[in-house]
């Protein structure tokens, strides 16, 4: 196939990319790392996730023996999910996280006691 025939064929084929946000997003693959999900019921307060998180996203709350996190810092490495012994942390498929407010409700996880939320 030469250069010209490739170009001509491309004229009649669909674009390579998806016109998001005009069209719905492409489905994410299995194993996609999106926003962190936390189930405080299952958490035993072992702090392993705090130790391995590269960005200090997760904070330990000593009184409740639970954790709180702010997704604004998360780099979606899923290291915390891997070490959590009880499966209290999971990665969701949600990647629509853009916002102009860093105190956005969607970024916060875990029991309340966050400075940003009390404004």
């Amino acid at each position: 196939m030469g250069l010209v025939s490739w170009i001509v064929r491309n004229l009649f084929s669909r674009p390579m990319t998806n016109r998001f946000p005009k069209t719905p997003p492409v489905p994410v693959p299995e194993g996609f790392r999106g926003k962190l999900q936390y189930d405080p019921e299952k958490c035993i307060g072992c702090q392993l996730c705090v130790r391995v998180c590269p960005t200090q996203t997760i904070k330990f709350l000593p009184e409740e023996k639970k954790i709180a996190f702010w997704v604004g810092r998360c780099v979606f490495c899923s290291q915390c999910v891997e070490v959590c012994p009880t499966g209290a942390l999971q990665m969701s498929k949600n990647f629509l996280l853009a916002s102009d407010d860093m105190h956005d409700e969607r970024y916060m996880g875990g029991p309340a006691r966050r400075r940003g939320m009390e404004r």
């Binding site: 390579m16 990319t17 299995e30 194993g31 790392r33 899923s78």
Partner: peptide, 21 residues
């Protein structure tokens, strides 16, 4: 355009397009 196919392959293996962890 060709590169998109590689990115899809990486996404398939690791879950994300860049920063595969």
């Amino acid at each position: 355009g060709v590169r998109e196919k590689v990115m899809d392959a990486l996404e398939l293996i690791s879950g994300n397009r860049v920063n595969y962890a």
